[in-house]
């Protein structure tokens, strides 16, 4: 629900049919304005023009007009039919799940969403999906009615006990979007929600594989470091490397180009991955590309944990836990809805 659109208070468009829904919405707003202005204007003008001049004056009698009645019956009917057709077309697109979709299974439960991917990854109150991919959700619930709603995708569907309902979308923009339960389901209804993470396809693949192996953050970080992101090609250590040595640097003072120093803490490591040019270590060239947008928060956490481990520091959990990254964290105990309330 980021409001970075040019319309104030307008939700982000992040799925292929979001623009269709919005177009229909603006069409309806246009119609509403086109009806409201003349009627309100008429009421005002008549109100001023035919204000009572003399108490109990009897204005001339006027009879109804069949022509007028017919006109103002047919025009709203025709307009309402255009609205119906527009809605039908948009709905038709939303309703029919594509055949080639990626399948995700959703189970609602008071008051959490349990999500399972085809690859076996499980999440709670979070859904990771790749961008530009058809995703089809097959949903049911263990107890009462729920409703899986993602406003940024302009879609939702009830989740009904004893039967399956379906929802599909094709996310167009990487980002983090609200996920709500929109059908009242009891005590903690307003807490039954979380986020949908739309990731680039590579990130999603990384996320997916990172998740499957059941690695600890350090192992996952090493995996990313050595294989997936290829950091090791520069930072593996040794004298001929183009990248700075990372062993033993954690929480140490490091000399930068220009003579200043910085403490290599979590924040610095994170910054160096996302914005490498900001603080260059003395003796190295500013040649590292940015990894912004390619690594997720979870992966960053894993990378930082790995780099810490190179200095013999165990990850004490100073960083936010990455629930999706470790199977242990997907246990219900850690599944409290995000504390954004």
């Amino acid at each position: 629900m980021q409001t970075n659109s040019w319309v104030p208070f307008f939700p982000e468009q992040a799925s292929t049919f979001a623009w269709q829904v919005d177009a229909l919405y603006f069409y309806l707003i246009a119609i509403s304005v086109a009806f409201t202005i003349p009627i309100v204007a008429a009421v005002f003008i008549f109100g001023l023009r035919y204000r009572e001049r003399e108490k109990y004056a009897t204005p001339e009698e006027m009879h109804g007009s069949i022509v007028l009645e017919t006109v103002w019956s047919i025009i709203p009917f025709v307009i309402s039919m255009t609205i119906f057709l527009g809605g039908a077309i948009v709905y038709y697109n939303q309703y029919r799940p594509p055949d080639d979709g990626m399948n995700v299974y959703v189970v609602g439960k008071q008051w959490m969403w349990k999500i399972q991917h085809e690859g076996g990854q499980r999440e709670i109150n979070e859904l990771h999906v790749p961008v530009d991919t058809n995703v089809k959700l097959t949903m049911t619930t263990e107890d009462v009615l729920h409703d899986f709603s993602i406003p940024a995708f302009r879609t939702k569907a009830d989740v009904v006990p004893g039967r399956y309902t379906y929802l599909w979308f094709n996310a167009t923009k990487p980002g983090k979007y609200h996920l709500f339960c929109a059908e009242y389901c009891g005590l903690n209804h307003s807490g039954m929600g979380g986020y949908v993470y739309v990731m680039s396809k590579e990130d999603f693949a990384a996320w997916q594989s990172g998740n499957v192996s059941g690695q600890t953050p350090v192992e996952q970080g090493r995996d990313l470091f050595e294989n997936k992101l290829g950091c090791a090609s520069c930072h593996a250590g040794g004298p001929q490397q183009r990248g700075a040595k990372l062993e033993g640097i954690f929480n140490k003072e490091i000399k930068l180009v220009g003579g200043s120093t910085v403490v290599a803490d979590d924040a610095y490591i994170r910054e160096s991955i996302l914005n490498p040019g900001a603080k260059i270590v003395e003796g190295y060239q500013p040649i590292m590309p940015t990894f912004k947008g390619q690594v997720t928060e979870e992966q960053l956490v894993a990378l930082v944990a790995y780099i810490k481990s190179l200095s013999g520091v165990a990850d004490t959990g100073g960083q936010p836990a990455a629930p999706a990254a470790t199977p242990a964290a997907t246990a219900p105990a850690n599944s409290a809805p995000p504390a954004n309330r």
Partner: peptide, 13 residues
Amino acid sequence: LFLGSIGLTVHLT
């Protein structure tokens, strides 16, 4: 009308 238009009401309901 917004809510009767089925394509739009999926988002709005």
